[in-house]
């Protein structure tokens, strides 16, 4: 089993909570965005007195921090492009994986077309990396700053993220004469009251005409080749770490206890 966690820390010093979560959930790969904790403090919190030890493999980028409890050389850098980090994961047991960690620009800094072009660029980087590693066992995880239903995430030129396994297992479709591979986006089914867990990962109440209140900017998407290793119930939006609730009494992300984003966790049974 390979367990991956993503959390946008919103610049807060949440390393003690991250450490508790990492140990409790036996996380193999930890991806952090907006992490302003100094590396020694982060590693110290993760490792002090704990059985599971984390390392920070070579990475020249600062926007995303990727740590692992796997052997040091299990995480191999493929590409860093500012807010995008691509890593080849070679676990001691089981098939290898292509990890694409992202923290894309906020809606505050980019308008919708700019965000869509950003996703087109991300899709190109993923395709290049898949070509390089010669497989399609790709997992995209991170804060896209877009919802699963927005153009850049759904469109064929973008991530081409679809809402059901059945569609994703079709593999691809031809658009404008070009074959475009699918990604399965299980986050579609995590919206609203009748979903497993909270209604989203990020809450925003604005004064404009259209506001969703709950958003799912923090997402995980998988290529069909990974679907045999993934059960939908193995994806969680975390709302509690030991005794600390990440939600306020009104059920919204509690920025005083945690971050404005909730963490997401996925398990893959790659070593079967």
């Amino acid at each position: 089993m390979l367990t991956i966690l993503f959390w946008n820390l919103n610049g807060r010093h949440l390393h003690p909570l991250v450490a508790q979560l990492a140990q409790k959930e036996a996380i193999d790969i930890l991806v952090l965005a907006e992490c302003k904790v100094a590396y020694p403090d982060l590693l110290n919190a993760l490792n002090a007195g704990n059985f599971r030890k984390y390392v920070m493999p070579f990475s020249p980028t600062r926007r995303l921090q990727i740590l692992t409890s796997l052997p040091f050389k299990s995480l191999r850098p493929i590409h860093d492009a500012g807010s995008i980090s691509v890593r080849r994961i070679v676990p001691p047991l089981g098939d290898e994986l292509l990890l694409v960690a992202v923290h894309l620009p906020s809606k505050t800094f980019q308008d919708s077309p700019e965000q869509t072009f950003g996703l087109v660029r991300l899709a190109g980087i993923i395709e290049e990396a898949e070509e390089k590693v010669q497989h399609n066992r790709t997992l995209v995880i991170g804060d896209l700053n877009l919802n699963p239903f927005e153009r850049g995430v759904v469109s064929a030129d973008g991530l081409h993220g679809v809402m059901t396994r059945h569609i994703a297992l079709g593999g691809s479709r031809v658009v404008d004469g070009v074959r475009r591979k699918f990604l399965y986006n299980p986050m579609w089914s995590r919206f609203g009251d009748n979903s497993i867990g909270p209604p989203g990962t990020y809450y925003y109440r604005g004064t404009t005409q259209t506001v969703y209140f709950w958003n799912i900017f923090d997402q995980v998407l998988l290529r069909p080749d990974l679907l045999p290793f993934f059960r939908d119930e193995d994806l969680k939006i975390i709302t509690k770490i030991e005794d600390v609730s990440l939600l306020s009494s009104s059920g919204l992300p509690d920025k005083s206890a945690g971050s404005d984003h909730l963490p997401i966790l996925i398990r893959l049974s790659l070593n079967r």
Binding site: P60, R76, H79, D80, A81, G82
Partner: peptide
């Protein structure tokens, strides 16, 4: 245009 650094000895790792 993206200016990129490629590291041949790191399996052609790329840094934008």
């Amino acid at each position: 245009m993206i200016l990129r650094i490629i590291v041949p000895s790191l399996d052609n790792y790329e840094y934008d």
